[in-house]
Amino acid sequence: MHLIGRLLSLALLLPALPAMAQTGTASPGFNYFHRAGATLEVHEADIRFCEGEARKTVAQYVEAGHYDKPRPGLFNTALLNAVQLQFDRNQVQANIETCMLIRGWSVVRPPAADEQSLLGAHQASLVSYLSARVGAATPQGAEIRRYDPTLAIVYTMPGYASKPQESLSYRAVFGTEPPVFALPKAAEWPEEWQFLNRVKAPAALGPATTLLIVRTHGTRPGQQINLRFMRIEERASDSPALQVFQASSPTKMFWKAGTPMQDIYVFEVPPGRWLLLGDTISTFCLGAPGFEVKAGEAVFAGTFSSEVVGDLQPKMAVEPAAAALPPALAGRLRAAEWRNGYAFDCGSPPATLLRAFEVTGATSK
């Protein structure tokens, strides 16, 4: 996602870094990842996997490794290219950390004396230090972050620190020299993907039309959520491989705070498995909730509210949505049966932040 777009999207959402939530920043300190019983080999394999997924989130307009080349548009300056490179480096580190947390690791900060001595140590020394710590029965240091799927997502900027926020674990795997990032271009949306538009006249739909309905709600002007849904299935001969649509919470100019607004989205969809793909800047590629839609059904995905930043839990009562739909369609409505734990390629579609999200109370796939 373009730097300027990220700034505009996130400028109002900068709370202090919580210890246990998913955020857009790496934890402060020269930290390592810990999981009781893990080996150095497993630690390295997970770091390399997460680094590969995290690199897919870098700026789409940057040619692979060429941050020194001019860019099109108004902000065509060497300085902005340098800032973008630093942002991307820190974004990669933040996404590596999120990925490791979701894979069961916690972030541990070594004791102060150890941390200072390790900052300038060679790679072999870092590996030696971690050999007795990454899989220890208890963390040796201060555990400062772990994954908790019940917490709301918090949106913070990856940051512009002059030195990349590299962890001890990262340096132990990839070396102690600051990396010369030849960051790859993020994957574009596949050409065969089909973007679905909402149905403008639900009353005209036939009784056997396969439908997916989303209700959004809000009472806070200026605070909007944008949710993306995706069908992920085997390729079908009569339709594109994937279909995507977006549902946004309501907003309008001169909206008075406290005045409730709602929007009902009706989409005609192919049957199959539908996932909550992500929000405005995030992809839930590391673990997304989803549900099945069978041919001829009208499935209600839930009510999503913009009341609490980062709280995307759907409310599954169908009555509020049914009351706003034509009677024939309202009578067909059934609540989606969510299941957690669907993963997909983090580079397609591209996004800024890697996430996982779980619907509370849903079973795992």
Results as ranks from 00 to 15, higher is better:
1 M>F: 09
1 M>T: 12
10 L>M: 14
18 P>Q: 10
19 A>S: 09
19 A>P: 06
22 Q>R: 12
25 T>A: 14
28 P>K: 03
29 G>C: 11
30 F>H: 12
38 A>M: 07
39 T>D: 08
39 T>A: 03
41 E>F: 00
43 H>Y: 11
54 A>N: 02
55 R>N: 10
59 A>P: 15
61 Y>I: 13
63 E>W: 12
65 G>V: 06
65 G>S: 10
68 D>W: 12
72 P>C: 01
74 L>P: 15
80 L>R: 09
84 Q>G: 12
86 Q>H: 10
87 F>I: 01
88 D>F: 07
90 N>H: 00
92 V>M: 13
92 V>F: 09
92 V>A: 08
93 Q>T: 06
107 V>H: 02
109 R>C: 02
114 D>L: 09
117 S>M: 10
117 S>H: 09
118 L>K: 02
127 V>C: 04
131 S>N: 12
135 G>A: 02
139 P>A: 04
146 R>M: 07
149 P>L: 07
154 V>A: 04
157 M>R: 06
160 Y>N: 08
162 S>K: 14
164 P>N: 07
170 Y>Q: 06
171 R>T: 03
174 F>N: 02
176 T>E: 04
180 V>G: 06
183 L>M: 13
184 P>V: 02
191 E>Y: 08
193 W>T: 11
196 L>I: 11
198 R>T: 12
199 V>S: 11
206 G>N: 08
208 A>G: 12
215 R>Y: 03
215 R>G: 01
221 P>K: 07
225 I>S: 04
226 N>H: 08
230 M>R: 13
239 S>R: 15
255 W>Y: 07
262 Q>V: 13
268 E>G: 03
272 G>R: 00
274 W>V: 01
276 L>F: 14
277 L>R: 01
280 T>Y: 02
282 S>K: 08
288 A>E: 01
293 V>T: 02
300 F>R: 06
302 G>E: 03
304 F>A: 00
313 Q>D: 08
330 A>Q: 02
333 L>H: 09
336 A>L: 08
341 G>M: 05
342 Y>K: 12
352 T>P: 00
359 V>R: 01
359 V>G: 03
365 K>I: 14
